[in-house]
Design a protein around this nucleic acid. Structure first.
Lengths: 141, 141
DNA sequence: ACGTATTTGTACGTATGTATC
DNA sequence: AGATACATACGTACAAATACG
């Protein structure tokens, strides 16, 4: 399994595919540290630029998180179940940068937008929230 | 309003902030074409690299879409309202690349994941979907 | 406490490809 | 055909944060 620079698919997407597959197969497990960018550069003989693009793809998919010390496979984290009133509307979008900071959401994680019947809106981090609809007599959390 | 390369905040984020503000103020309206990357290069005397990073940020936030002919402000598009059964669970996440293609979702747009009480799951593009919950009995309150 | 190594972040340059106008 | 504009991909360099001896 290698990377073919002459293939139709861009190098960085090939690398993203490859790493994604390793994550999905469990070869890279949640919480586990990924090899450094320079490791991938050395392993596949590609530019750091391409490696960083691949990482950006995976971050955008919420599969990994990257810190200054390296990237690791995101672990699901426990989600809190939130009850919403009947008639509430729910959708989702990506947060803007200020929202992301304010809500403490990682990159690549959408936010759930709940509009209650009374017009109030709530923003919740999608990776830590499951919305349960219209069920009777249950509490949050 | 300009960009200060010596500021703490990275140039590309400053530019993203600036363009985001123009969008939010309505100076750049939905559907409208953004200036070309080279225009921003010229306007602020920064590298194309920085401009492209800024664009990537805004794409990631779902604020703009970029095509080969340029970028434009995403227009909300009509959202379809979907009813879900009481007891259904809803969350959201970013699609992986294959999912994104299969569902025809633009970059920077999350997907809603609906799990019905019977275990069936549905994936829906969040930018075109509003979920309305528990429509059993309009005389709830 | 300090310097060094590691790793990612940012930012510049250049070049080529490809699709559109 | 030519100009324009974005996509990809290589290179370099330095900064900043963290970890380690």
């Amino acid at each position: 399994m290698a990377i073919d620079p002459s293939a139709d698919r861009p190098v960085y997407k090939q690398l993203a595919d490859l790493i994604r597959a390793r994550i999905e197969e469990g070869e890279l497990r949640p919480g586990q540290r990924l090899p450094a960018e320079s490791d991938y550069v050395a392993e596949f003989g590609i530019s750091r630029d391409s490696v960083r693009r691949a990482m950006a793809v995976l971050r955008g998919e919420g599969l990994i998180v990257t810190e200054l010390r390296g990237s690791r496979v995101r672990d699901a984290g426990e989600a809190v179940t939130v009850q919403v009133a009947p008639g509430a509307q729910v959708t989702a979008r990506m947060p803007t940068e200020p929202e992301r900071k304010q809500l403490g959401v990682a990159e690549g994680v959408p936010i759930l937008v709940i509009t209650e019947p009374d017009g109030e809106t709530r923003l919740l981090p999608a990776d830590r929230t499951i919305i349960e609809t219209g069920a009777r007599g249950e509490d949050e959390r």
